[in-house]
């Protein structure tokens, strides 16, 4: 299969998923609302101390995102699993790699949008400062979203037909993305609170490294996950 064909298939799958998500946007709205609720709960949990909230704005943002991400990721194979459509996709000449890329890109985009939605809330609730500009923060969001999406898509496929998937997906995913959480929280925090030592660069590199490793692993291994 040529690369161009593969890209075309990935785009087709991505477009189909985006269309489905858009038609069922009530669910996406609910997930975004869940993220908002989590951020609110964090501020209730730490109390009305504004300084603490500002200090940990990045941490709360990423935790809220990670908790909502499980819901969003589980969604990405629900339709296929319910209708046995993975089988259908597999019988069609659709390449597993194209399928993985299509799904993972949609998931990464979804998480990225979710992060952008939660950012203003972090400003309002926690007093997070955006002096460094939204651009670099959005860059960190994109890298972090990609880091969660690649193993997340793979594990969503792994758990899609298992009874206990609600507990297994976060159980498998959360420990795996510990480096993403560390690096993304650090980078976001440094961008919000100031970066006197110029450390954002190395955290970004770590995120890039994680992304490269897991997008490659996901591309290689996805075929074995969806086979019968």
């Amino acid at each position: 299969m040529t690369a161009a064909e593969r890209v075309r298939q990935a785009v087709t799958i991505a477009r189909k998923d985006v269309l489905l998500e858009w038609r069922g946007r009530a669910r996406i709205n609910a997930i975004a609302f869940f993220g908002v609720t989590t951020l609110l709960m964090f501020s209730f949990a730490i109390g009305p101390d504004a300084r603490t909230a500002t200090l940990y704005a990045g941490a709360f943002l990423w935790l809220g995102l990670l908790l909502s991400s499980v819901l969003a990721l589980a969604e990405s194979f629900r339709v296929e699993a319910e209708n046995d459509a993975v089988e259908g996709l597999r019988l069609l000449p659709v390449d597993a790699l194209a399928m993985f890329l299509g799904k993972a890109v949609v998931n990464a985009a979804l998480l990225f949008v979710l992060a952008l939605l939660l950012l203003p809330l972090a400003v309002v609730l926690y007093g997070a400062k955006l002096d460094a500009g939204v651009g670099p923060i959005a860059g960190v969001f994109a890298l972090g979203a990609a880091g969660v999406a690649a193993p997340g898509t793979l594990y969503a496929a792994v758990t899609s037909r298992i009874q206990a998937r609600e507990v297994l997906l976060p159980l498998l995913l959360f420990p795996l993305v510990v480096p993403v959480l560390l690096a993304a929280v650090k980078a976001t925090g440094l961008l919000m609170l100031g970066d006197p030592m110029g450390q954002v660069g190395s955290w970004t590199q770590l995120l890039v490294g994680f992304d490269v490793v897991y997008w490659i692993l996901g591309s290689l291994l996805f075929a074995r996950v969806i086979e019968e």
């Binding site: 193993p151 793979l154 594990y155 792994v158 498998l172 420990p175 795996l176 510990v178 480096p179 770590l206 490294g209 994680f210 490793v213 897991y214 692993l217 291994l221 074995r224 996950v225």
Partner: peptide, 14 residues
Amino acid sequence: AVVGILAFADAPIV
């Protein structure tokens, strides 16, 4: 096997 590979690959990054 897939999960085992992903888990082990995580160790050095962590």
